[in-house]
Simulated assay, not measured.
Amino acid sequence: MASIGPRYDRDKNLIGWQARVIRKGYPTSSKTFRQKKDAEQWARSIENEMDKGIWRDRSEAEHTTLKDALNRYAQEIIPTKKSGDREIGYLRQWQKRPIAKRFMASIEGQDVAMSIKEMEAEGKGPNTIRLHLALLSNLYNVAKKEWRMSSLDNPVELVRKPKLPQGRDRRLIDDEETRLLAACDEGLTAWLRPAILFAIETAMRAGEILETWRYLKDAEGNKVKTKVSDGLQWSDIDLKKRTAHLTKTKNGDARTVPLSSRAIQLLQELPRSHDDGRVFGTTYEAIKQAFARNCARAGIEDLHFHDLRHEATSRFFEKGFNPMEASAITGHKTLQMLKRYTHLKAEDLAKRLD
């Protein structure tokens, strides 16, 4: 049976109404509300669930704040994820938001929507916001399945996600490839040339080819320069089989990349003078700066090193590869993502119509 009683503070001031539901075979459920009618409504809903046999224990979710749940997530879940270094930064930012003080069970879609507006006001882009929401959503799924919070509804599923901007469609046009490579030779950055050509031949990500460092936040929120990729190693290369095996990729899945004859030739011409086993003895940060300088020298505008992955993926389709074959090389998990990286030239498609 349910009982509704007033709750007072130390000065005997009424602060709310506590509802208690006591039913044989069930643990005692209780919750305090500011209004008596809300306490009565809650008690009736609990009793109805018990009558129908669909009652679920809410105590854990109703007494665990989002901040505390995020701390547990940081201790138990993030260490098992390959993207943990990046996710810890998103997690700490969630903990600083007003929503973090709320109990897990009390957070609704409108609360998450408010957080989205906060992030937009802070200048965060749609994709960054989506990554923050992905972490929060996974936290709720874990809490529901593994942390005795089976009554939880995932509030992230109730909000509209920021719309991603249309993907870049920048490809090399006309004689840009020739001009870019010539600029590398003229600008005393010939070491950049094989990295550019290898990226075009393989569609590998910059972090898969090159050693990469980023500033990530530690547990206290301080920025720390951290290596996030070792880059391609000679031990990953099998020249006889013409493959490069990548054990650590952005999406977390290992893959083996087939190498073209041109890619093999590039590798055979590279010196093996790096003690740490790297194929390309430089970092993505150095490549990025040198790439921008050479583009300027060659008179090429709005071209990024990452655009070479778009170029390579599109060339695979122009060579006749089907989506399954292309995705096996590039590592795209979904056709939608593969489509964002594929930009076929209309003039090339027109030739196939003859």
Rank of each mutant, 00 (worst) to 15 (best):
S83G: 09
R340W: 01
A190N: 10
A69T: 11
A346C: 00
R34W: 05
W55L: 07
A292D: 14
L192Q: 10
K345N: 11
Q233D: 07
L164M: 07
A69E: 04
N154Q: 11
M114C: 06
I196V: 15
H332P: 04
A286L: 15
L353Y: 14
L131W: 08
V224Y: 07
T202W: 11
M50P: 00
I200K: 05
G84Q: 04
A74H: 13
V228Q: 02
S314E: 11
L188M: 10
T256R: 00
G331F: 09
K124H: 08
L136K: 02
K24C: 02
D218T: 05
L133C: 06
E62H: 04
V142H: 11
L14W: 13
L131E: 12
H306R: 09
E146P: 03
R130K: 12
I4M: 01
I196F: 06
Q110K: 15
E301T: 14
A74N: 09
H332G: 02
E318C: 02
N71H: 14
Y90L: 11
Q110I: 15
A286K: 13
A296G: 03
E347S: 13
L338C: 05
R168N: 06
F280H: 01
M104G: 03
H274V: 14
E157Q: 10
A19F: 09
K31V: 05
Y284M: 04
L136Q: 03
G84E: 06
I129G: 05
E177F: 03
D348F: 14
S115M: 14
N138G: 05
C295L: 09
K52F: 12
K36M: 10
R10V: 10
K339N: 09
N251C: 01
K217N: 06
K96C: 09
S115W: 15
D57Y: 10
K81A: 06
R92I: 14
R262F: 12
L344Q: 08
R171W: 05
I4V: 09
T212M: 02
V159W: 12
T330L: 07
H343F: 08
G331I: 06
R148Q: 15
E157P: 00
A69H: 00
I22W: 15
D218H: 07
T342Q: 02
A290T: 13
R23K: 15
F317R: 00
R293T: 03
G125Y: 03
L349S: 00
E177C: 04
Q289K: 15
F33S: 01
F280W: 10
P165A: 09
S327E: 07
I116K: 03
L181M: 07
F33Q: 02
